[in-house]
Design a protein around this nucleic acid. Sequence first.
DNA 1: TAGTTATATAACCATATTGTTATTTATAAT
DNA 2: ATTATAAATAACAATATGGTTATATAACTA
Lengths: 107, 107
Amino acid sequence: MEFEKLADTLKALADPTRLKIISLLRTRDCCVCELVPIFNISQPAISKHLSRLKTAELVHETRKGQWVFYSLNEKKLEETGFALNHLPDLSEKLKELEKQGLLVRCE
Amino acid sequence: MEFEKLADTLKALADPTRLKIISLLRTRDCCVCELVPIFNISQPAISKHLSRLKTAELVHETRKGQWVFYSLNEKKLEETGFALNHLPDLSEKLKELEKQGLLVRCE
DNA sequence: TAGTTATATAACCATATTGTTATTTATAAT
DNA sequence: ATTATAAATAACAATATGGTTATATAACTA
């Protein structure tokens, strides 16, 4: 389960446009119409990228009048970087293999 | 460019099977035939996952007789986690928008 | 040399991703 | 009420992803 969830979050991050959006949100909360002129893609494309980030809980949205402002969830971003270097331990699987004599012995 | 490269590395990481492989390699170098019985997918599927990780420089391969052993590139993994929290700065883009009067002023 | 084991590659398929344009919904302004 | 602006959703297309089975290649074994 843990691996699936982390993989989902990493998928949300694994796109240059979304990484750039995250970098921009680090500077300042932004609404969709501010992000659109920065990228060479359409408004719906930006909107979908933000929606993907929101589903992954990497950003938070707040409506202010006719605008929707997006802000970065820095905690989630930090957690993800941390998780990469602290993956759940699967050494049990290797111990099981060893019991079954399935580990390769060379040299 | 930087964003594209990071996105590529994250794509290589953004899969539960590959994350599990990385966790296993943290314990011990493994060859393909050891990994296969741990997962419910075919040998070619495992082989392709390893190939993907190798292209991203997240693992290194060494042939030992008839086996090919894969080892984790811990440095690359650490760098990636670090990069997530130190994305290149794009605040210039927002400054440009400001000059053009394209930033939204509400409240 | 022939057979076996380990791994990689090829060809293929179903689904996901990422973009597009057109349209809808929500809010603000005239 | 009508019009304009911001953002989301729908429908679609091209490409990427992740699996399969069949086959090729590499190295060991008898």
